[in-house]
Design a protein around this nucleic acid. Structure first.
Length: 971
RNA sequence: GGGCGGUUAGCUCAGAGGUAAGAGCGCCGGUUUUACACACCGGAGGUCACAAGUUCGAUCCUUGUACCGCCCACCA
């Protein structure tokens, strides 16, 4: 068993403590749920980070919230699973490894498919999943024994199952469609992976001559190069300028072929000339119009967006942007360029490569989402899934009602390969094998056979296989991994579809695939549906919606009951953090610290535009002149929890984390104080003093507050309640109130105080543990035995729950009185600049019997906290000396001025106070003078207002009298 | 074009139809007291973006305006 050091240093050193405890927890298996336990389940699936990724602030934020929830529910007795894992991140990972190969002067094509995939696995084993280590540093209490990877055998089987079942239900189909094509990656991507930004461009106006040479039409385009694929010119059917031309032909320049003029509602007569060129194979709108008018789909691009053989010879092989220049130049030369104007337009770019995406005509696999969407929408409507905050449900509906079919095939190598085969014999003409190495150039199976090439060998060697639209898919039977023979001809020469599935296809299954589906496992029965999903709004469409669809489809139940949607972590200026902007903070640097030079180096090395390095450096040096100190994981976690307010982005500033680092130190020192006074378990006292009863009462209130806040995912409120309790109630007041007894000469009183002091500390540690797991464990290990607790770890102790019976109104009233009394004296001291250690004589007057008793009973506390020299009662009519005065209820507290206080200063102070009370008084009178208020407002509100008025009046008169006496004496 | 969110103390943010709007940081003044200067004590600081409406009462509800931000959408 790990033990905290016997002599606690003055300041808490998180680094050593944190790693020590994490190792212990993990080794002891404290993170694993006990399936045999009779307890309600609580499960959270981690949104699987990319295996290529490192922990950024967004992760750290999100994972902190998940861990707070996990630890909280675990301590509350739930059978708790936080399921960790990572995502194979097809495109991202493939890019990482390809970049490596590039540095070695190689490429994936040099390696071939099988070898390349090998290489990726190798990379994954050695350097993948850095995040796992980082999560541990953060304190994440995931069940690492159940860690999953989306390409694990089990998860891959789930992918195949899902694909085959959807395919057999016609919910997955293959089709030739216009898709978003990334010419750098040579793959299709989904709509969601395209990010459109407004950019500066031009609008070119071209003249297309009529075929009969009589006139011309002017069309406007932002993409001149696509004209090589134009199939028509469209005008609005009611546009009188052009109706007579509909049905005629224009001559398409450069391509030198005739195309028709068609009429279509979609054309906006107000825009440009009111004529639109139609390129059905290269624009989504034009594709639609092409369908309506039965136009040919003429593709003029290659896979890397060069001009292909369908265009005039002079253009073939040209890059799209070069082709654009050339088209413009030639049109201009031919006198057909009418004008050019500047134009802002939305440019679609790939979210990974940043390259301009092309609408491109290819064969792809799609999920028909309509039938899947309906139950998923209903699940949220019915309340089976609740979004927190609930406005996100609207965003969800909005998207779900407008779903387009989901393109799930990707032309990359790293990922789950589409579980579809084709028969080389039956489909001998529809399959083309490319890059066969020494077997030759390639060709269809039939052609290869004609040349005497062994098909199986060719299949194995093919670097790329093209599957024609008419090929017949063969999918595995439900239990099989792959079909052995063609069901049609019995041939075993089957060729697998070359595409892999969108990464999100497998992540959509995460909530059940990680629990063992399609097997009916105990974990699945126990933890599905999971309790809550914690995620950012940015992946509601990518991931959340798809999990709901898949869960409803394959589990007949929602994947989670609640979705907590958090905001984005931004820098202190409110900018999105990004490496290319050089404004990122690494959560690990906040935990362990980093010196300025390293920080500057780190931030300037990953810039997109290297010329910004100077600015980034200046900014960094200004913001972090001393670098970043090691705040510790606890401080970082508490900061995130405190900033986690509903549906709002958070700006991360160092002041906040510094404050919470201080909080951990504060707690540390409160513990040191305890250990100074408590060395063995104190005896339970026969009766408790009022400060003891008060702090216990206050603890119950805090516990209730935390429970309410946690139930509503109000992490900030929960954190604040604990903070306020520990710092302001326990440290500032309770420990100060404990000192007289601890240092006094009544051993029984001291023992009773020790008893309460250590037990409240212990409860406070448990209360705080989900937020600050490390420092609480470190202290708890030592405090627990003294507080009569047993156990190997705080993280498996029961979470403190409020006990109504321990709420003590009387003790709370005593405390409130004392706080006011002491506060009054401190305020006089503070404002009159009296040294805190100079004893001051105090006179009291007025008040009631209760006040008398309290002054007598609480005298030791008053002495300790306010240091009066003596307290004397003054008769109601007795002449008071010149004095500074405060009021506690009706009790007047006077501090004689003589030798202590400046009369002028006290008069000013009184005037200020009088002014304030006069304002309150007037407000209250006005309110009560309004018959509408007294008649219509609820009786209790009116009654409370009357009480208030009486108080104000009393207070005002007292202050007035004091002021008059003082100024009278002055004259 | 549609939708969503924001505007409260110098800064970062909480907040509820009804006392006198809060916290942390920062600021000002005081204190090295035997847990803690990463501390303690006292204090200053807000027309709750603007306008109208509902109400006995609005900073909170409604509508509108302004500014900021985000998401979605096919105007070439």
């Amino acid at each position: 068993m790990t033990q905290p050091s016997a002599d606690l240093p003055k300041t808490y050193d998180p680094q050593e403590v944190e790693t020590r405890w994490y190792t212990f927890w993990e080794a002891q298996g404290f993170f694993l749920p006990n399936l045999a336990e009779q307890a309600p389940p609580f499960a959270i699936m981690i949104p699987p980070p990319n295996v290529t990724g490192t922990l950024h602030m967004g992760h750290a934020f999100q994972d902190t919230l998940m861990d707070v929830l996990t630890r909280y529910h675990r301590m509350r007795g739930a059978k708790t699973l936080w399921q960790p894992g990572s995502d194979h991140a097809g495109i991202a990972t493939q890019m990482v490894v390809e970049r490596q190969l590039e540095q070695e002067g190689s490429s994936r094509h040099d390696l071939g498919r099988a070898e390349f995939i090998n290489r990726v696995w190798q990379w994954k084993e050695t350097s993948g999943n850095v995040i796992g280590t980082q999560l541990r540093r953060l304190g994440a209490s995931c069940d690492w024994s159940r860690e999953r990877f989306t390409m694990d055998e089990g998860l891959s089987r789930a992918v195949t199952q899902v694909f085959v079942r959807l395919f057999n239900e016609d919910l997955i189909y293959r089709g030739q469609r216009l898709v978003n094509w990334d010419p750098v990656l040579h793959t299709a991507i989904s709509d969601l992976e395209v990010e459109s930004e407004e950019e500066d461009g031009h609008l070119w106006h071209f003249r297309y001559p009529l075929a009969d040479g009589s006139d011309h039409l002017t069309v406007a385009t932002t993409r001149p190069e696509t004209m090589l694929g134009d199939q028509a010119v469209a005008v609005h059917p009611e546009d009188e300028r052009y109706t007579h031309l509909v049905g005629k032909q224009v001559h398409l320049p450069l391509a030198e072929r005739p195309i028709p003029v068609v009429a279509d509602d979609h054309v906006d007569p107000e825009f440009g000339s009111g004529c639109v060129k139609i390129t059905p194979a290269h624009d989504f709108n034009d594709y639609q119009m092409g369908q309506r008018h039965d136009l040919t789909l003429l593709n003029i691009f290659t896979e890397d967006a060069r001009i292909n053989h369908n265009a005039p010879a002079a253009y073939q092989g040209l890059d799209r942007f070069k082709a654009r220049e050339r088209v413009v130049a030639e049109m201009d030369a031919a006198g057909l360029l009418a004008s050019v104007e500047d134009h802002r337009l939305m440019v679609p770019r790939g979210d990974r490569t940043g390259t301009v995406i092309e609408p491109f005509l290819t064969d792809q696999w799609f999920v028909q989402v309509g039938p899947l969407a309906r139950p998923a929408i209903e699940a949220v409507e019915r309340g089976d899934i609740r979004f927190v905050p609930d406005n996100w449900a609207k965003t969800y509906y909005e998207w779900m009602y407008n779903l387009e079919d989901w393109c799930i095939s990707r032309q990359i190598w790293w990922g789950h390969r589409v579980p579809v085969w084709y028969c080389a014999e039956c489909d001998g003409d529809h399959l083309t094998l490319h890059g066969l190495g020494n077997l030759g150039e390639g060709g269809t199976p039939n052609q290869l056979a004609a040349h005497g090439v062994a098909l199986v060998e060719a299949i194995n060697q093919a670097e790329h296989i093209h599957v024609g639209s008419n090929a017949t898919p063969i999918v595995p039977g439900t239990e099989d991994e792959r079909p052995q023979r063609c069901p049609n001809c019995g041939s075993d020469k089957l060729i697998q579809d070359p595409d892999v599935l969108d990464t999100w296809f497998s992540s959509a299954l995460w909530p059940f695939s990680t629990l063992g589906w399609p097997e009916d496992t105990e974990e699945l029965r126990t933890f599905y549906p999971t309790t809550v999903l914690v995620t950012g709004f940015d992946i509601i469409f990518f991931w959340v919606a798809r999990m709901i669809m898949m869960g409803c489809k394959f589990m007949n139940n929602v994947p989670f009951e609640e979705v907590y949607v958090h905001g984005l972590v931004r820098d202190s200026e409110g900018n999105k953090m990004s490496k290319s902007k050089g404004n990122v903070l690494d959560p690990l640097d906040l935990i362990d610290g980093i010196d300025l030079e390293s920080l500057v180096e780190k931030r300037t090395s990953a810039l997109m535009q290297p010329d910004k390095a100077k600015a980034v450096e200046t900014m960094t040096r200004k913001e972090f002149p001393e670098g970043i100190p090691a705040f510790g994981a606890d401080a970082l976690r508490f900061t995130f929890a405190s900033l986690a307010t509903m549906g709002r982005d958070i700006k991360f500033d160092l002041g906040r984390i510094e404050g919470y680092r201080n909080f951990s130190t504060k707690l540390w020192n409160a513990a040191r104080f305890n250990f100074m006074h408590v060395s063995q378990p104190p005896e339970a006292p026969a009766g408790r003093t009022w400060p003891d009863r008060w702090i216990v009462s206050r603890l119950q209130r805090t516990e209730a507050e935390v429970a309410d806040a946690m139930a509503a995912y109000r992490f900030n409120d929960a954190g604040h309640a604990v903070y306020d309790f520990i710092w302001h109630a326990y440290c500032d007041w309770y420990l100060e109130l404990a000192k007289p007894a601890l240092q006094g000469d009544d051993p029984q009183a001291a023992e009773g105080t020790r008893f309460t002091m250590i037990r409240v500390l212990e409860a406070g540690l448990r209360l705080l543990h989900p937020f600050m797991p490390f420092v609480t464990e470190e202290i708890w290990q030592r405090a627990a035995p003294l507080a009569g607790c047993e156990g190997a770890t705080i993280m498996r102790q029961p979470y403190p729950a409020a006990d109504e019976a321990l709420i003590d109104a009387e003790a709370e009233a005593d405390y409130a009185w004392l706080e006011a009394f002491v506060g009054a004296l401190r305020s006089i001291r503070g404002e009159m600049n009296i040294n805190p250690y100079q004893a001051i004589p105090v006179l009291v007057r007025g008040g009631d019997e209760r006040d008398r008793q309290r002054i007598a009973n609480h005298r030791p506390f008053i002495d300790a906290l306010a240091r009066p020299e003596r307290i004397d009662w003054l008769g109601q009519d007795a002449e008071a000396p010149q004095a500074a005065a405060e009021l506690v209820g009706e009790l007047q507290i006077l501090v004689p001025l003589e030798g202590l206080i400046d009369l002028e200063a006290e008069l000013q102070r009184l005037d200020k106070e009088l002014e304030k009370v006069a304002g309150d008084l007037a407000g209250s009178r006005k309110k009560l003078g309004n018959p509408d208020f007294t008649d219509k407002a609820p009786a209790e509100v009116v009654a409370r207002e009357r009480e208030k008025l009486a108080e104000f009046e009393e207070r005002y008169n007292q202050l007035r009298g004091q002021r008059d006496r003082l100024s009278g004496l002055q004259e």
